[in-house]
Simulated assay, not measured.
Amino acid sequence: MKNNLTFGLIICCCFIFIKCKTTTEKQTDNSSFKSGKKWLDTNSEHINAHGGGIMFHEGVYYWFGEHKTEGRGGNTTLFGVRCYSSTDLYHWKNEGIALQVVENLDSEITKGAVIERPKVVFNKKTGKYVMWFHLELKGQGYNAARTGVAISDSPTGPFKYIKSFRPNAGTWPMNFKEAWKIEPDNSPLKWWTPEWYTYIKEGGFVRRDFESGQMSRDMTVFVDDDEKAYHIHSSEDNLTLHISELTDDYLDFTDKWITLAPAGHNEAPAIFKDEDTYYMITSGCTGWDPNEARSFKAKSIWGPWESLGNPSIGKDAELTFNSQSTYILPVEGKEHAFIFMADRWTPTNPIDGTYVWLPIEINQGKPVIKWYEKWDLNFFNK
């Protein structure tokens, strides 16, 4: 009996040891970036922060993203915006829901609305954390095309929802010609014709939405060296990008804005600045399906912006390695070190979406993205 008991204890201890070792391996095997693979947090659960962005503050990176759920309805927002924290970019701690949707059907962020591409920035003047995101109202599909803003005293939340709206109502873009402010007598109605493209490039949809405010869908927020912040979003039925200056408290828009690549059909904007040059990477508009990325550069945030073509090179470059841009992350403490962050969407089961993180190189004045099966931050020590 004693021998049997001893044997049983040994087996039990071995099982516990193996289980603990396996769990530890799951939690600590994050010493490099493996794009497209499931990325586990410190609780050994797949990171659920899609379409996200990262804020660095006081030695910590905070990753904010869409909390997806299972099934075809998983792209509606049933929980809110989730936050993770890390000090090394490899290991991420789940900090919970930073902005929570509510049960109140009268709220713009009621459960079942669509909250996408959340970006959080810290305002040094006010000491507040400000979150901007693309908001679609419940039951309206993608017709609302609004931008929403929330605020918090803590980087991990809870964030308090303030409002949503279509920006720049009653204000012309700074790069808009006077002649374009008057609607032509014979506006073309048939889409995708040469005449229609000209109509869009000469402000047809800007005029259309002048009074009600411009559409705002895929978006990001960029804080420049002088602490000025800019809201960059896909507008005009995803045909044209808009760059808008935010107020000093980052909670609203000023009257300063421009159009970028009118009729170019760009979405998923991601921006970074290297030395004195601004770079932007976007995608085309093919729904949840991947497509060929585009890139631009300018010496001023207000342009002129130069088109540089596809920044991806190598196998699957024409599909941006089966992903879509969401954010470009400057690596703290390293010069000329930027990470291209992208999503691999799985619309039939959104919670299974994975992430593509790749280093960006600047080659002859152009951003270049190559595929690496596995890489780490030592890449930037070259």
Rank of each mutant, 00 (worst) to 15 (best):
1 M>Q: 11
5 L>N: 02
6 T>P: 02
7 F>G: 06
7 F>T: 07
8 G>R: 15
10 I>N: 05
16 I>P: 13
17 F>Q: 14
19 K>P: 02
33 F>M: 13
35 S>P: 15
40 L>G: 06
43 N>Q: 15
48 N>K: 11
49 A>I: 08
55 M>N: 01
65 G>L: 07
67 H>I: 05
74 G>I: 01
81 V>C: 13
82 R>D: 00
86 S>H: 08
87 T>Y: 08
88 D>P: 08
90 Y>F: 15
93 K>N: 08
94 N>V: 07
94 N>T: 10
96 G>Q: 04
97 I>T: 13
104 N>A: 13
107 S>Q: 08
108 E>N: 07
108 E>L: 00
109 I>L: 03
119 K>N: 05
123 N>A: 08
128 K>L: 07
129 Y>E: 04
140 Q>P: 00
140 Q>Y: 00
142 Y>I: 00
143 N>A: 06
146 R>Y: 10
150 A>T: 10
152 S>K: 08
154 S>A: 10
158 P>E: 05
162 I>P: 01
163 K>E: 08
166 R>T: 09
173 P>D: 01
176 F>N: 00
179 A>V: 14
179 A>T: 14
180 W>P: 12
183 E>H: 10
186 N>V: 12
186 N>K: 12
189 L>R: 11
189 L>Q: 11
191 W>G: 09
196 W>E: 01
197 Y>F: 11
198 T>L: 06
205 F>W: 12
206 V>G: 01
206 V>M: 05
207 R>T: 05
208 R>Q: 06
209 D>M: 13
210 F>T: 03
216 S>C: 14
218 D>L: 04
223 V>Q: 09
225 D>E: 14
241 L>K: 01
241 L>T: 03
244 S>Q: 15
245 E>N: 04
246 L>I: 02
247 T>Q: 05
250 Y>I: 00
254 T>G: 06
262 P>G: 05
263 A>L: 07
263 A>M: 09
267 E>H: 06
268 A>K: 12
268 A>M: 14
268 A>S: 14
268 A>P: 14
270 A>Q: 00
274 D>R: 08
274 D>L: 08
275 E>C: 08
278 Y>S: 01
278 Y>L: 02
282 T>D: 01
282 T>R: 01
283 S>A: 13
283 S>V: 11
288 W>Q: 07
292 E>I: 13
296 F>T: 02
299 K>Y: 05
300 S>C: 03
301 I>G: 10
302 W>L: 04
303 G>V: 12
308 L>C: 09
313 I>N: 13
317 A>C: 07
320 T>C: 09
325 S>T: 14
329 L>E: 11
330 P>T: 06
331 V>Q: 02
331 V>I: 09
333 G>R: 07
336 H>N: 13
340 F>N: 00
342 A>F: 04
343 D>F: 00
343 D>G: 02
344 R>W: 03
348 T>H: 09
350 P>Q: 04
351 I>S: 15
351 I>P: 15
357 W>S: 05
363 N>M: 12
367 P>Q: 04
371 W>G: 09
371 W>T: 10
372 Y>R: 07
382 K>N: 10
382 K>F: 05
